[in-house]
Nucleic acid binder design. Structure first.
Length: 208
DNA sequence: GTTCCGATTTTCT
DNA sequence: GAAAATCGGAACA
């Protein structure tokens, strides 16, 4: 399998997000390889996106989003959870794709152990859950996934259709149809959002 | 320095 | 459906 290269990430963030669906996330930890398929993502940009951490410009936390594309942006939230993003756009132009859900492929027992749960569909069906299952924390913030041996992404395709919706858990920028997920996949995190049937209808802002 | 609050998850009612 | 858990970053003074 082929690793996604720098040029893949160096594009308009919603495009990168959508095409990241189906790719294989590889995490090497403690001599073990954990593999999972990306099934749900969200795009976050900069000055045009009030929901983004990078909206107000460069800060200590968001500097990774402004840096070279193809790096991991990991942040800690609610005092409990880590979330994994992959940076996009070009140097100086902020952007990142939040990995919201993955489908476990390999190392499932290790993921269960790290999560402390048995049910397969509850293992990685949310951004905080998958970060815990894969052992992702702030030490991986800034990691170059184009070169890293601990965290990287392989090219892959989705079997089914891509669905589009508004993003989850944000208080501004709610109208943007920048959440993409594998339709019908049981690992996609559940939440009430506007769901668009096609990309075209999403662009027009028409439901259904 | 102090305050506010979040790109969440789990558990309880 | 609602609330609690718990902490670091960012904003404001």
């Amino acid at each position: 399998m082929v690793r996604l290269d720098r040029s893949f990430y160096s594009r308009y963030t919603p495009d990168v997000a959508r095409e990241l669906l189906g790719s294989v996330l590889v995490r090497v930890i403690g001599g073990q390889e954990l593999r999972s398929r990306v099934v749900e993502v969200e795009a976050y940009r900069g000055a045009d996106d009030p929901a983004s951490h990078a909206y107000r410009g460069v800060t200590k936390r968001t500097s990774v989003m402004f840096g070279e594309p193809g790096h991991a942006y990991v942040y800690f939230t609610f005092g409990f959870h880590h979330c994994l993003n992959l940076t996009t756009e070009t140097e100086g132009e902020p952007g990142a794709v939040l990995i919201r859900a993955v489908e476990p492929l390999k190392g499932i027992d290790e993921m269960k152990k790290r999560r402390g749960v048995e049910q397969l569909t509850n293992l990685t069906s949310g951004p905080g859950k998958l970060a815990k299952a894969l052992g992702i924390d702030l030490s991986l913030n800034g990691e170059d996934v184009v070169r890293s041996r601990e965290l990287f992404v392989l090219r892959g395709r989705l079997d089914g259709n891509v669905a589009v919706s508004t993003r989850i858990g944000i208080s501004s920028g709610q109208e943007k149809p920048w959440r993409f997920y594998a339709e019908g996949n049981p690992f996609v995190s559940g939440a009430r959002t506007i769901n668009y049937r096609t990309l075209e209808s999403a662009r027009r802002g028409v439901v259904g």
